[in-house]
Design a protein around this nucleic acid. Structure first.
Lengths: 229, 229
DNA sequence: TCAAAAGTGTTCACCGTACACCCATGG
DNA sequence: CCATGGGTGTACGGTGAACACTTTTGA
């Protein structure tokens, strides 16, 4: 190993984003239809190349902003993929990120501009390059995260019902949960704020709305509390 | 986003390795004293640059081989670090890997060649660039991994005593464990093979040696068994 | 009045944890 | 015979899982 950086190979560094959403029934991912070569017309993750002046997190944020119009999206670096021929055009290493967005916030225009579409994770088409593998990784990570950190709330509107929250967890974990046990667990965490409002859309009786109390959660974390579901 | 890869920035991609070892008392990391600029004379992780013909895993293996002389080292990709000025010479993104090796296997010559040295993790010097952060990440990941997968055995000789195994877990988790509970848990996993041999070095009575039974473990995993300590 | 979802507690089995004494041996 | 580390089992409390009926109200 020498001190001559000039003799070393340089590579393209891509950032690809797995964007999750939730429509109150199923876990979804946002995919784009490529209108450029290679693999034009096929479905893929939203991606882009790292620029010299930005970090990977910056790049992921930029890419997410392009497609959704939003900043401050929950986002986490996943893994770096480096098969030599993963991109047929040029040697490209890709760093995958996953993001959680409230599906109601999506921007119709941008989605149209990129020919993007939400797919149920169980019904997504097969993707270009190694993007399918990235999605698998992301789902695994998300499953793990939900039992470790209160990330689920990123996928819901600010006010939500217990039923919605439960359905979200069922969608992520891909298993049915018991209503009473679920609510007991959530209440035991003591990180939600129950509102006086009811959501009257889902039933005649109406169901109470809740909000995630981030301040309370942060305080608890400082006191050594660890979220565990 | 265009289809012109040529206009995109290319970067140097480094691979840095956090190498863990265990000396029956403390968890250690292997560091090298840089004999080249920048930061010549300072301590750093062992690293190198990704070459065009190899994957990140290949590169990490190559680098580990250089320093230890061994192939087939347990190794896992950790995270990619990309602060714009993390390397003062040129824009370099670094993918960190961590590795677990049996400290008895270390190769004196190679260690000397690279001015490498084993440090207790609690006593390691501060490192160049963002390497300290990488080490922190690696320790966190290792702590988590040990309760999820039987990675600990990578750090021990093939035959080891229960006491050694317990000390290893204590070193990784940085907490004292109860002897009886620990042994009960390990035995409950049923993935060790108790040998007829005893290690006579540690006590007059001698203590039985065990081996990790990888075949048994793999069979259990296929049957849905999940390691949980 | 009935259909449809909301809301609500208890019991039991199992697991994790705390805890202390005898054993074998070499010096 | 004694000092040193090796080896062993039980009791208790807490947590996670199973489980069913009543309430509300719009149509």
């Amino acid at each position: 190993m020498l001190n001559n950086y000039n003799t070393e190979d340089k590579v393209l560094l891509a950032v690809d984003c797995i964007i999750f959403g939730f429509d109150n029934e199923e876990l979804k991912i946002l995919l784009i239809k490529r209108d450029f070569e290679p693999e034009k017309g096929k479905w893929s993750l939203m991606g882009g190349f790292l620029k010299n002046h930005e970090t990977l997190d910056n790049a992921a944020n930029r890419i997410l902003h392009h497609l959704t119009g939003f900043h401050n999206i929950y986002m986490e670096q996943l893994y770096s993929f480096s098969k030599v021929d993963r991109d047929p055009v040029d040697r490209t290493i890709s760093v995958a990120y996953y993001a959680l967005i409230n599906i109601e916030d999506h921007n119709e225009e941008l989605i149209e501009k990129y020919s993007a579409k939400w797919f149920n994770i169980s019904e997504a088409p097969s993707l270009i390059f190694d993007h399918d593998i990235m999605v698998e990784h992301a789902i695994r990570r998300l499953r793990h995260r939900t039992s470790t950190k209160p990330v689920g709330f990123e996928l819901l509107p600010e006010k939500f019902t217990m039923r919605q929250l439960q359905k979200l967890y069922e969608a992520i974990l891909d298993e049915k949960l018991d209503k009473r046990n679920f609510i007991n667990k959530i209440n035991a965490l003591d990180i939600l704020h129950k509102l006086d409002e009811k959501d009257m859309n889902s039933s005649r009786k109406g169901s109470f709305l809740y909000q995630f109390d981030k301040e309370k959660y942060d305080k608890k974390v400082l006191d050594g509390f660890t979220f565990k579901l």
